[in-house]
Amino acid sequence: MTGTGTLGSVPPNPDLRSRLRGLVSELGKFGAVGGFAFTVDLVLYNLLLQQGIETLIAKTVSTTVATTIAFFGNRFWTWRDDGDHVSMTRQYTTFFVLNLIGLGIALACLAISHYGLGSVWAPARSRLADNIAGLGVGTALGTLFRFWSYRRYVFRVNVAPAAQSPASQ
Rank of each mutant, 00 (worst) to 15 (best):
C109R: 11
W79A: 05
F36R: 00
Q50Y: 02
Y150E: 13
G142A: 10
I57F: 09
G83D: 14
T139D: 10
G138E: 08
S87H: 11
G34E: 02
A133P: 05
G34S: 05
G83C: 12
S113V: 15
G73N: 01
L107V: 15
V40R: 05
I57V: 15
V65S: 08
F147W: 04
T139K: 02
I112S: 06
R125C: 03
Y45Q: 12
A37I: 02
L44Q: 07
Y92T: 02
V40S: 11
R152S: 07
A111S: 14
N99L: 00
N74A: 07
N158K: 01
V65Y: 06
V97W: 06
F147G: 10
W79Y: 14
I112L: 15
G34V: 00
I101K: 13
L103D: 13
K59M: 03
R127H: 09
V120H: 06
R125E: 10
N158E: 07
Q91S: 11
R151T: 09
D84P: 13
T94R: 12
D84N: 14
F72Y: 04
R125P: 02
F145Q: 06
D84L: 02
D84G: 11
A140W: 09
I53A: 08
L56M: 10
Y115P: 09
P123Y: 03
A58W: 07
A66V: 12
D81P: 08
L144C: 08
F38N: 04
V157A: 01
T63L: 10
R125F: 01
T60N: 14
Q91C: 04
T93K: 10
G104S: 14
T64W: 13
C109N: 12
S62I: 08
W121D: 10
G73I: 08
T60W: 07
R151E: 04
P161Y: 00
D41N: 13
R80G: 10
F72W: 01
L107F: 06
S87P: 10
A108L: 14
F72I: 01
N46I: 07
T78W: 00
N74C: 06
A133W: 02
V157P: 00
L117Q: 05
A66K: 05
D41C: 02
T143H: 03
L48S: 09
A162L: 01
D81Y: 01
V154D: 04
W148V: 12
L47P: 06
I53C: 08
F155P: 00
Y45I: 03
A58P: 05
A37G: 03
L42V: 12
G104P: 09
A106M: 08
I112H: 05
T63A: 06
R146M: 04
S62W: 06
F76S: 09
T68W: 03
D41R: 03
A66Y: 13
W148L: 07
R80E: 14
F71P: 00
L144D: 05
A124L: 07
L98P: 15
G83K: 03
W79M: 09
A160H: 13
A122Q: 13
L48V: 12
T39Y: 00
H85R: 11
F72P: 00
Q51W: 05
A129K: 00
W79C: 01
I105E: 12
R152L: 05
A37R: 01
A108K: 06
T89W: 05
